[in-house]
């Protein structure tokens, strides 16, 4: 069962209005999908740089600092639009297995990024232009790419109710 808070949230005017709106819900969803270009597009470029397959002559720190504002702006739009999508359909989304997988993977990418910044990235000056970045940096880039790919797939699958518990229907 969903927590009382979500059962209450689902009955709020805003949630019902968003859920039943003809235009606003599709617009919010489109913004969420298209912001993939801004957020994930820039994040993928950073990850590919860590793997040494793009922009090899540009220092890692430069790629990261120059693209970070765009990545963060995209992430903010993702959180807001994603939050609104959850607000529109809270109970069903909460009970959906793909949503839960997505949240778990999001937590893992957060941990991955946190570890990267607290460990190998601290010594970036030593390997900023290295032909092959240290193993831990490459591992962080690869992990990020994989996690985000599965987050996109899980996100897309939230639309399907294959494994939804019966009380949702």
């Amino acid at each position: 069962m969903a927590p009382d808070f979500l059962l209450w949230l689902e009955r709020t005017t805003g949630s019902i209005a968003l859920h039943e709106s003809l235009w606003v819900y599709p617009i919010v969803e489109s913004v969420h999908v298209l912001t993939l270009c801004l957020f994930l597009g820039t994040a993928v470029m950073v990850d590919l740089r860590l793997l040494g397959v793009v922009l090899r002559r540009v220092p890692v720190s430069e790629v990261l600092t120059r693209l970070r504002p765009w990545m963060m702006a995209g992430f903010a739009v993702m959180i807001v639009s994603g939050g609104l999508l959850f607000y529109a359909i809270p109970v069903r989304t909460y009970l959906n297995i793909f949503f839960r997988i997505k949240v778990a993977l999001l937590a893992l990418t957060g941990i991955n990024a946190w570890i990267f910044h607290r460990s190998i990235y601290l010594s970036v000056a030593e390997w900023d232009l290295a032909l092959v970045a240290p193993r831990r940096a490459r591992a962080a880039g690869a992990a990020s790419l994989f996690l985000w790919a599965f987050i996109v797939v899980a996100g897309r699958m939230i639309a399907y109710n294959w494994f939804d518990p019966p009380e949702v229907h």
């Binding site: 999908v33 270009c37 797939v153």
Partner: peptide
């Protein structure tokens, strides 16, 4: 469709760069 979306992100990055 998931592959379509992943390619969208990649194209987005390459175009935006």
């Amino acid at each position: 469709e998931s592959f379509h979306l992943l390619a969208l992100a990649l194209i987005g990055g390459a175009v935006l760069l």
